[in-house]
Write a protein that binds this DNA or RNA. Sequence first.
RNA 1: GGGCCCGUAGCUCAGCAUGGAUAGAGCAUCGGCCUUCUAAGCCGGGGGUCGGGGGUUCGAGUCCCCCCGGGCCCGCCA
Length: 627
Amino acid sequence: MVLKKLISEAEALLRWVGVEKPLIQPARDPRFGEVTSTSAFALAKSLRRDPRKIAEEFAAKIDLSNARLINSVVAVDGYLNFKVDWQRYSEEILKTVIGQGEDYGKSNIGLGKKIIIEHTSVNPNKALHVGHARNVCLGDTLYRLFSFLGYDVVVLNYIDDSGTQMADVILGFKELGYPLEPPDGARFDAYCGDTVYVEVSRRIEEDPLLAEKRRRIAKLIEERDDEYYRLNREIVEKVLKEQLKTCWRLGARYHILNMESDILSYDLWSEVFKKLIRVGAVYKAESGQKAGCWLLNLSGHPVLGREGDEILVKSDGSTTYVARDIAYGAWKLGDTSRDFKYKVWMRDPWSGEILITDVKGDIEKPLGEAEKVINVIDIRQKRPQEVVRYALELMGLKSDKYIHFGYEVVALSIKDAVKIGYEPEPGQEFVHMSGRRGLYVKTDTLLDMLKEKIKLEVREKHPGWSEEKVEEVSEKIAVGALRYSLIKPDTDKMIILDADEMLKLEGDTGPYLQYSYARACRILEKTTREYSTKAPVELVEEEKQLLRRIAYFPEVVEDVGESLLIKTLSNYAYMLASDFSRFYEKVPVLHVDDVELRKFRVAEVLAFKIVLGNVLRLIGVQPVEEM
RNA sequence: GGGCCCGUAGCUCAGCAUGGAUAGAGCAUCGGCCUUCUAAGCCGGGGGUCGGGGGUUCGAGUCCCCCCGGGCCCGCCA
C-alpha cells in the first residue's frame, strides 16, 4: 500500500521526463535510497548511449516539486536512486498499519471468489507422522493465506477408508485377536498404526495365507458387507477423531471430510467415463499385455506420452486410483451432475462445523465454481496428478485451475532411524518414513519432546507462573517451532528430520519470532499506549529499517498469493522479527525523555506488533504475549 | 532407458519465478555486550572457484545448453 504509493510516485516522476516503461524496484541497500530505477540501462541499448549519462540527465530533469514522499533523486553508475522524506513516509506507514490493524496486508482480490484446498488426507489407520505434518502445515497456511486475501476457502480432507491398508488392520482386529481398546490407554490412532498395522503387515509378509485373508476382507469392505463394512467405518472414525486432534493441535481447520467409500457409492466415475469415451480420450486395449483394460490416451501429452498410456479400468472392470481421482477432480471442478450428501460429524475447537460425506445424510453443500482447486500432495505423486489434470483437460474442463501443490517428503536422519531400530546401509544418509514398517516419528511425539524442553526453560524464566500458564505457553511455542520448521524450507527440498536439531530454540526458529513479539508486548504493556505518528526530524537507521520492512508486507502477501511460495512468508516474518530485535537493542522507547519522541516510538512498536501478529497468524505460529 | 527435482560457508538453508551495485542468515567456532523496555537477544572475527564447463547480456548465484554428483517417479497398488 504505502510501498506501492512510493513506487508509483517514482514511476510518475520518470514518466514526466519521458520514460515510457519505468523500471522501479525497492533498493537492496539503504545507501541507495528507498527505491531504485534501472531504466537507464534498459534505454542505453536502444539509444546506444552510456547508461550513466542517461541516468544523470534524468536526475537533472526530474522535478521533485510534485513529489510527496520522494525528496531526492541521484544518479549513481547508471542507477537512479530515490530517497524519501522519512517524516512523511514513516507517518504514512504508521497511520496505515495502526489504522488497519489486523486487516493490514489484507486485500480484496479474492472477494466473491472461491478456492478449494485439499490437504492432510492421511490413511485412517495410523497416527500422523512428521511427514504428514508438513502436508498439514503447508495446506493450512494456504487456507490462511487465501482467506486473508479475501477468498472463500473450503478445506477438504480426503479419507481413503477402502484401501488395502484398512484391510490390514481389520484383519488384525477381527481375526488376529487385537483388542479394540488400546491395552495401555494409548491413543487409538497410535495404537492402530504403531501396533496393529505394523505387526499385521509383518505377519502378512511372512504368511501368504494371511495375505489371502486380507484380500477377502478388502473385498468385503468394498461390497459393504454388513459386518466388515460397519467395523471398518467404526475404526476409521475412531482413528480420524484422534488424527484430527493432532491436526487441530497444529492449528489446522477443515470443512469437509470426503470418504472414499462414499464417493465410490455415488459412482461419479461412470458419468466421467462416458464423457472420456465421448471425447475420445480413452480406448479399450484389444490385445497385448493390457488387453481388456481401458486406457487414457496420453500420446498428445508432451511428457507423459513417452511413458505409455494410463490404465483407468482394469481388465476385471474395476477402476484404478487415477480413474477415481479423475472422477473426484471432475467433482471439484463442478462437472458432475450428482453431488454428495453430508451430515455434521462434529465441531472443531473453533466451533466450526465439520461435514462428512454420508449416503444417508441430509445436508447438501454445492461447492460452486472455484477459482482454484489446490491439492496438497507429496511430490512422488507428481506424475499421477499430471495424468489427472490432463484427463480433465481432455474432458474440456478448466484444468489450469486444478493445481497439484507438491512438496518433498520428510525423511529420517540415520541417527534418528537407528534410535527406533533401523539398520542402515553403509553410506546411507537418510531413510524414508514408512507407516507399514514402523519407520517414522509421530507428530505428537515430536511436539511433546519440544514441549517438555520448552517447559524447563519457561519454568526457569518464570518461577512465579502457575503450571497451567507454563503448559499453555509451552504448547504454543512447541507448535510454533514445528510449524515454522516445516514451512520454512523450499517445498522442493527434502527435510531430513534431526530431532536434536529440531529441538533448538534459538536463531531462525518459530520461538525467535514469538520472542520478539513478546518483547514488543512488554514495551506496550508499560506505556499508556498513547502513541503519535508524528515523526521526529531524524530517524535512526534501525527505525527506518523496521518501518521499511513493515511497508513491504502487503506486497509480500500478494506475491505469495500468486506464486504459492509459502516460505516467502516465513522468510519475511524472520526478517521483520530480526529488524525489530536490532531496533530493540538500539532504540530506547520507554527511556526517552522527549514525550513526543516516546509516543512516536510507541507507535512504531505497536505497528510492528500488528504486522508480526498478522504474518504469524498466516503461517499458523501463535503469537505469544509473554515467554 | 525416459521424465522431474536438488547441488550456495564445516553443517542446515535464504537469495533464482520478475538478471542489476561489495553473495546473506541460522547452527557450530572465537571474542565482546545484562544496576536501562525479557540475553529464547544484540554486536564483531574467521569461514565462499554460488557442483563443473560453455553461451546470452552493458551486467548471471539468478536465463539457455552440455556434463558431474545426489534424490524421486515411470504397477491391471492406493
